[in-house]
Amino acid sequence: MRVDLFDFDLPSERIALRPAQPRDAARMLVVRGQAMDDRVVRDLPADLRPGDCLVFNDTRVIPAQLEGRRGDARIGATLHKRIDLRRWQAFVRNAKRVRDGDRIDFGAGVTAIAEGRDDDGGMTLFFEGDEPVELLLERAGTMPLPPYIAGKRPADAQDRSDYQTMFAKQDGAVAAPTAALHFTPGLMERLASAGILTETLTLHVGAGTFLPVKADDTGDHRMHAEWGQISPEAAARLNAVKAAGGRIIAVGTTSLRLLESACGEDGIIEPFVDETRIFITPGYRFRAIDGLMTNFHLPRSTLFMLVSALMGLETMQAAYAHAIAEGYRFYSYGDASLLLPEG
């Protein structure tokens, strides 16, 4: 499909620079089939059925944004995928000033050696020393805010908590699974009281999620790889939900992509430990999920293509036009949508 079919105009003032407080006070556009309702996230229990299951991503965002120097050159690095205990793939700013074997000093006693370019357009960095890389990043790194926020303000101490979900346990993401930012302990209690089930999986979100689609046709776009895991126990519980007639509602496109990667043609969700490059565009047949809760996404992005595959391109164009007209807040710190294709 032509990428320009997924374009739309978004006023810059619609981009949220801070999350709603409290988190479940964010607005939520509910799209059932082609019908739309303006709600609030705390209304979610009333919009689901007893026996439905919300699936959360328990990845934890690490402070993966680094600023340093190689000689007199300023070098920026955003880590996006772990290779081993001391090596990470990174997108590097001013990379033309870095050669293989160069040492980059990120301050606070943190240095890394450039070890070559990778297929995703980045560079491999080897972090020197004996301390775990996670400790080095806590000392020298900052939260890797999305470019559309970082371009308007620097990351600060508040982002250390704001850009982390209440489910975050497994270190490794360099972008938050932002749909889950809306959840609070109080909301989780009300969901449980309403008979709504929950499950967790892990997908370490990479910085590649923010890369623009440069191709003119979706068939020419190469999706970034992300590592994920669904335990055998979680897969069994999710299949039991489906067998009992409950709906699987992915909280975030990351959960959705991993569930669909792990699901066979027979609709059975299998245990999964691997990387996925799944790219979902209109025409895709969903096998694992029955709905999606997600934020509002960038024009021409793979994520807007995904929601258009779930709901239909015309429906999502109408939903986004409504959201813009009604003042919904967009992107990572913005408002939510609940997308239910069967109404």
Rank of each mutant, 00 (worst) to 15 (best):
A157L: 14
M123P: 04
D119Y: 00
Y148N: 13
I149L: 11
R190L: 04
R190G: 03
L135G: 00
D102A: 13
F167C: 13
L181R: 13
A179F: 10
R153L: 11
R117I: 01
L136A: 11
R139H: 03
M123W: 04
I113D: 08
R153S: 04
A175D: 08
E134G: 02
A140D: 03
D130L: 09
D156A: 07
E128N: 01
D102F: 08
G121D: 06
M143Q: 10
I149Q: 02
A180R: 12
L191G: 11
E189K: 14
R160F: 05
T178P: 12
F183A: 12
M188S: 04
G101F: 05
A114S: 14
A108R: 15
D171T: 02
A112F: 08
V133M: 06
P132E: 02
E134K: 01
L125V: 05
Y163V: 08
T142W: 03
R103G: 00
Q158R: 14
G172L: 05
E134M: 01
M166K: 00
A112D: 01
G172N: 06
G151D: 15
Y163A: 06
T184E: 12
D120L: 11
I113C: 07
M123H: 12
E128H: 02
G116T: 11
E138L: 10
A176D: 07
L125K: 07
F167T: 07
D102W: 01
R103A: 09
T142R: 15
R190D: 07
D119R: 13
A114V: 02
L145S: 05
G121Q: 08
A155H: 08
A155M: 11
R160S: 01
A150K: 06
D159I: 04
R190I: 05
D162L: 03
K169G: 00
R139W: 01
S161N: 07
F126L: 15
Q164G: 03
P185R: 13
G101N: 07
D105V: 04
V110Y: 06
A173C: 12
A112H: 02
L135C: 00
R160Q: 14
L137H: 02
P154N: 12
A112C: 11
V133N: 02
V110C: 05
A176I: 11
D100Q: 14
A179G: 08
L137G: 02
V98S: 07
A114M: 03
D100E: 15
G121T: 06
T111I: 07
G141A: 05
A168I: 11
T124G: 00
V98P: 08
M166A: 14
A175N: 09
A140R: 04
V98C: 13
L137A: 05
A112I: 04
V110T: 15
V174D: 10
R103Q: 12
